[in-house]
Design a protein around this nucleic acid. Structure first.
Lengths: 147, 147
DNA sequence: CTACAATTGAAAAACGTTTTCAATATGAGC
DNA sequence: GCTCATATTGAAAACGTTTTTCAATTGTAG
């Protein structure tokens, strides 16, 4: 499953870029291929390093510029972390939140948060009109847990 | 109530600094006074600007260094935001989470999050061993809601 | 194929944070 | 109170990351 979905997700993103009037270039292909298949939130420098294995001429500036476009198109999202707040990961599908492994950085989305009750409570106790929430879980992924 | 508690919180922090072997200096007093009474998460530059009204000789470096110590003593904590991830606010008492006003930046803590059930669900569905969670609500504070 | 405009990478600039260092101010001990 | 060792200070410099500038290159519509 993974190989097939990864490839098609990559093509999907490139098609999305093209449909939005952006050009599909070699550097962008390298970055998209990486980001569409990564299970870790990556910072620009890491994307640059990894991307250069695929396309050696890649410039760091292009990484920044491409991330900006991918984020604008909702394909990638920024992840805040204790260790860094400029990490990027493929965006959530609909309403999902992140679980992050504090050891290896593996990131996974989950859905079905039930904080509606909490939001009501906070609305009443603080008088705030809650419009958005931010939830992230941290821990050890299955692989790291067993070692 | 507010004036009294603010003053005593400020003195508490200064006593805490002294008890930990740190010296109580004029620049630190200015920063502590500010941070102990602020209802907004502030970034270093803002603390610098505001602090200089109180103590004009204040240096930005001292702001960074003092924040570092206040954080180490658990008096202040870093707040991550969409707009910035190096903002500081008085630390939570025990297990509390933040509600932030997206309009004016007013920050308030609340307690009583009931995400134990969610954590169990995610533990089962992902196999992660959850050890920590991060929850923040965003919206409009009472004042901004009515205007 | 051509031509125009988007995109590129290198270099320079801008930005926030950290380090270095000599001068200063604090607080413990007398 | 005074003295003194030393923690702390602010200015300047260094640092790493992000953004801007610019001429050369590359994609794509026609």
């Amino acid at each position: 499953m993974s190989e097939e979905t990864q490839t098609s997700l990559c093509d999907q993103w490139l098609a999305n870029l093209a449909a939005s009037g952006y050009r599909v270039t070699a550097p962008r292909r390298a970055i998209v291929e990486l980001m569409a298949s990564s299970t870790h939130a990556l910072e620009p420098l890491a994307i640059y390093d990894q991307g250069r294995k695929d396309y050696p001429g890649l410039g760091l500036v292009t990484v920044y510029r491409t991330l900006e476009k991918l984020e604008e198109l909702g394909l990638v999202q920024r992840v805040h972390h204790h260790q860094g707040c400029h990490m990027y990961l493929r965006a959530a599908h609909g309403h999902e939140h992140l679980v992050l492994c504090t050891r290896c950085g593996h990131a996974e989305y989950f859905s079905g948060d039930d904080i509606g009750g909490l939001i009501n409570k906070v609305t009443q106790s603080t008088g705030f009109e809650i419009r958005e929430h931010w939830l992230q879980l941290f821990g050890l992924c299955p692989a790291c847990k067993n070692q």
